[in-house]
Structure formats: structure tokens, C-alpha cells
Design a protein around this nucleic acid. Sequence first.
DNA 1: CTGTTAGCGCTTTCAC
DNA 2: GTGAAAGCGCTAACAG
Lengths: 341, 341
Amino acid sequence: MKSHQVTIIDLAAELNISISTVSRALSGHPNVKAETRRAVLELAEKLDYQRNQMSISFMTSKTKTIGIIVPEFTSSFFSQLVTEAQNEASRNGYMVLICQSNENYNIEVANTQLMRNRVDGVMMSITKETKNFDHLHTLHKRGIPIVLFNRVCDEIMAPKVIIDDYDAAFKAVEHLITTGKKRIAHLAGPPSLNVSKKRLNGYIDALKKNNIPIDESLIISYDLNVDTVKTHIKQLLALENPPDGIFAINDPAAIESIQTLKQVGKKIPDEIAVVGFSDDIVSKYIEPGLTTVAQPVAEMAVTSVQLLLELVNTDPADWKRVIKVLNTELIIRESTMSKKS
Amino acid sequence: MKSHQVTIIDLAAELNISISTVSRALSGHPNVKAETRRAVLELAEKLDYQRNQMSISFMTSKTKTIGIIVPEFTSSFFSQLVTEAQNEASRNGYMVLICQSNENYNIEVANTQLMRNRVDGVMMSITKETKNFDHLHTLHKRGIPIVLFNRVCDEIMAPKVIIDDYDAAFKAVEHLITTGKKRIAHLAGPPSLNVSKKRLNGYIDALKKNNIPIDESLIISYDLNVDTVKTHIKQLLALENPPDGIFAINDPAAIESIQTLKQVGKKIPDEIAVVGFSDDIVSKYIEPGLTTVAQPVAEMAVTSVQLLLELVNTDPADWKRVIKVLNTELIIRESTMSKKS
DNA sequence: CTGTTAGCGCTTTCAC
DNA sequence: GTGAAAGCGCTAACAG
């Protein structure tokens, strides 16, 4: 028994007026007699009539929905970001369609295709594999605006919401140096990502500025798969001149590093200090507490949504490139500074 | 310059054939000459034609999208659940629209309204405030199936995916008793939630079975707002006969309890042991590690999506009530058992 | 094998 | 103030 959805046709028939009048009454058009409007509204209420969003979307080509594509959201950074973005979208009358690319380029492309015609705009962080950006250009050609956040690329003209990764990494490494560390290793992210490159450069320049030689054997190429961290750390410890500090590209890697170091009996931070990136929820609970660069997640989410909605309501010809660089803060905890007790 | 979207009309015009033929060629209908089909497919490819999902959804009243409404997803339980659900939906060709009710009944209702006509089915965990279920019945009347998971209610005939909260709580409390604890407090959740009631009953019965008197002053009414945990713990410690064990309704509360207990210098687990619920990511990193009931999040997500998609493809008249009860596991860590070292 | 046509629910001219 | 009718992109009878 297929449930018949109440339509304006039903309302019109019931009231013996035309559908145009019903439509006008419902949408608050001025040219409707007060009495007629009241009758329509009353009946609509009574029958629990609700506009069919699909027909509206179809007609107007507007879905009142935005899409968010992230690599994953098990890590607290992306899950917090999606949380905040959803709330901000909601405040503006938009719904949120989410996709995880699972760090897979093909899935990312498939997701952008699925989003065409389903959303009015897309917010995204690219995968570590993404090197070709045709799928983003295609969205633009379709008049669907994009806002990139966190993991961005230079190849597309879209607003970007980022932090100063170079500066944040520089500060983090310099902090390690300040605490007396001299052989600082770096778990570096995939070179395809801007953030990896910038954080690596920040690391290198902080060492250079402090006259510490760059040792290639201390720069580990890490593919963001946490399962490999243990191996990387053991490899570092096995060096004839092992590191006394580690700067990890992100918190999951830093946290796994701490776990490994504790397992093999290393004293943190005295024998080896650890700094992470992003202030994952776990960071403040783990022992020792993880020193890390906090990103303004909520601000990044809200800014991205706002920029996106501006574009959604702007003619593509007038879209302009904006780059918002948000402030970070180095949160110092016990993984780099012994507790004063 | 509004970008014109390529439609089957364009393809038909270009090839001098009718739109029906184009439609058939595109959708793999058998009755199309191979040559014609090839030409259509070729042109479609060339012009980067893609079906307008909105028109399809409009026509068929099917959106190929499911909605997920959760109270929040900052805690790892819901974020993991959404993660897994999104992946499972994706494997089945469905997209996911997410909403957070923020534990607010009115928002939950608003979300269900927004979902009408936008999704083919809804998966949800109700808020702690939800006592009226008309919004769910309305969805059903519209032919939109619902699957409830984790936080369910008895008032609606819909499949439910849950765990045996009573049994899990019973096991957790009995474990505390086994370790020698005799005055066990309970941070109890809002009585409106089934899970709260069941976990409370498990707590009570475990005490009873072991001949431990129920002490009302040890049962704290906790509203799921973690900021209040500190006060609750201090209140418990101020009792003339303070507890030697705490069973918290969820991990965030248990984690906050541990933090508070550590701050006031209590030895965990010797002076007071703590057990949580849900195996939040933080639980295994905090010190001492938190003993907690692990819920099979991935299984719950996958099961819920599968049940929902079954209903989506079933006539409402044939919908049947299924209740899946999944297994839990008590994960014992140092918050209840001192490390053997 | 292919073309013609109705229609999904709604908004929006254009008439009256 | 109100009604008639076109049309958004596509599918699915129906007719050849």
C-alpha cells in the first residue's frame, strides 16, 4: 500500500481552487486573498502537507545541501571538523552530505561525481594520492563551487582555508631545540601533500637557523598508515646515533611513537621528546601528555562553510580566490617538558 | 555565465535521434542497435554527460541517500559508527546525509522533517530528551523506513540494533566486585534513555546477586554533560563512606572521573576503581587504562545500514520488526586491575 | 529497434 | 486575485 504523498494538487482539488493559487498562498506571495490563504494554510496543516524538496531541487537546480569530502574521520581532527561544519551548515539552512575518500584517489573522484547534482557546493580535503585535479575542474564547470581546507592544492582556483604549516612546524621544532634537543627526527608525511612539504620545510629551517645539521637518516618518509610507525621508531632507535627528539607530521603518529617508546623503555621527554600536530583528543590524556600544534578546527570548519555558502549564492563569473590562514598554537605538555613537581 | 548542463536532449539533437533512444542506450536497455548505442555512449563521454540525479530522484521518489541522525559525533562511539555506516552505504551505492541533534528534541524533529523527501531511509539514535515519537511515525506514514541503533525506544515499530546493556552492565559491575570492591557507585544516565535504565538495572542486580546493599547515595544522576562529572565525583568522595569503585554510564564520564580522581590524589584502582562503557579511543591511552565495555561499533553500523536498505527496498506493508542484539566484551585494563609487573 | 507522449510536483510567466 | 499552461530532465508505456 504505497502511501500517497499530499501534493498541492490535492489541496487545490479539496478547496476547488487552482494549484497556482495554492502555490502562491503557501509561498507567501502577496497576491492572494487573506481568506484564501488562510484556508490553504489550514488545510495544509491538517493534512500535514510538506513541500516535496525533490521537485524543488529539480526545478531550481538547488539542493540546499553541501557536500564534505574528507580522507577519513576516525581521527578527531576531521570528525571535529565535520561536526562543526554540519552545525554551521544547519544554522544556514543547509544539510550536509558526507563522503570519506579513505585516502584513495579513485574514491575521491567517484565521490565528486556522485556529488554533482546532489549538492550546491563542496568542501574538501584531498587525499594523499591526489595529483590530478580534473574532477575539481569538472565541478567548477558545472557551476559547483569548491572550498578546500587543511589539505589543499595550488592547481585549482578555489578558496582555501589553511594554517601556516611552515610556521607551525618551525615553532614546534624550535621548541624542541629550546629544551636542549639536538638530534631531532621527523616523521614526514607524503610529499604529495602541501602540508607535508611545508611542515618539512619548517623543520629543516628551524634546524638550520639553530645551526643543527640536517641528517637525512632522521627524516622518515611516513605514509600516514599508523601501523608502520612502530617500525619507523625502531629504525630510528637502531641508528648508531639515535634521535633525542621526534617531530611527527600528525598526532596519531606521535601517539603511536610515544606508545612504542614507552614499550621499549625510553624515558620521555628526558631521553627522547615527542611533538605532534593537530591536538587530537587523545593527546591530552596520554601519558606523558603530548606537546602538539593545535589547529583551530571549529574556526576552520565555520570559515569554510561560510566561504562556500557565499560562493553558492554568487554567479560563478564572480567567484574569487581567497586564502584564509588561521592561527595555530603550540600546546606544550609533558612529552617535551618534564612536569615541575 | 550560467553553465549549461548537458542533457539527453542535447545528445539526441546532436545525433539526430530521439531522446528515448538516448535514454535507452544510456541505461543499457536491450532494444538498441549496437551502433546507435556506441554513438550515444561516445558522445556522452565526449561531452562529459552525466545523468541529472535530481530529475531521477524526483521521478522515482528515490534518492539513493540514507540519513543518519545522531545526538553528536564528537565522542568516538558515534564518529566511528558514522564512519563505518558511510562506508557500508557507499558499498551499496548510497550516499549519507548526516545530522546531529545535539541532544535537543526540537532539532531532532526538525531534522526528521528535513529528511523527508531527501532520503530513502533514516538511521538514528534518539536524544536524551525524546519522549514523543510522532516525528518517527510521520516518517513511517511517508513510507520512509527507520532503523534505530544504540539508543532506541519501544514506542515505534522499527528494526533495532542494540547490545544487551543490562548484561554488559552486570558483567562490568560484577568484575568490580570480583576485584574486591564493595561500595560501587554508578554515574547513571538520563532515565529517559533505555540504555540508562538497563545499565542501571544491571548494576543493581549485580550488587544484589552478590549481597551488596543498594545505597541510593552512590547512584548519581548524570545528564551526559561531562562538565558536571568533576562535581559528581567530589560529591561522592565527600560521603562519610565514599565508594571504592565507580561504574560510569559511558567512557567520557569515566575518563573525566579518572582525571578528577588523579587530581585529588586518589590511587586507581587500589583506592578506587573505574569502569566505563563503549571503549572510546581515549580509554586505552589514558593512564591508568580504562576498563570498559566494548561495543561492536562497526558491526552495529553495518547491520543497521543493511537492515535499513532492506526496508528501503521492501513495501512498507511488509516491513517487519527485527531486533538485533550484538555481543559486547568487557575490556579489562589498569583502572580496575593493577598491572602485574 | 525507434519515436511520441504523458507525467513526476512545483514555480512562474502570461492572461483574464 | 486567480487560473491556465509551460517546463525543469528523465523514464516508461504505447505505438509503430
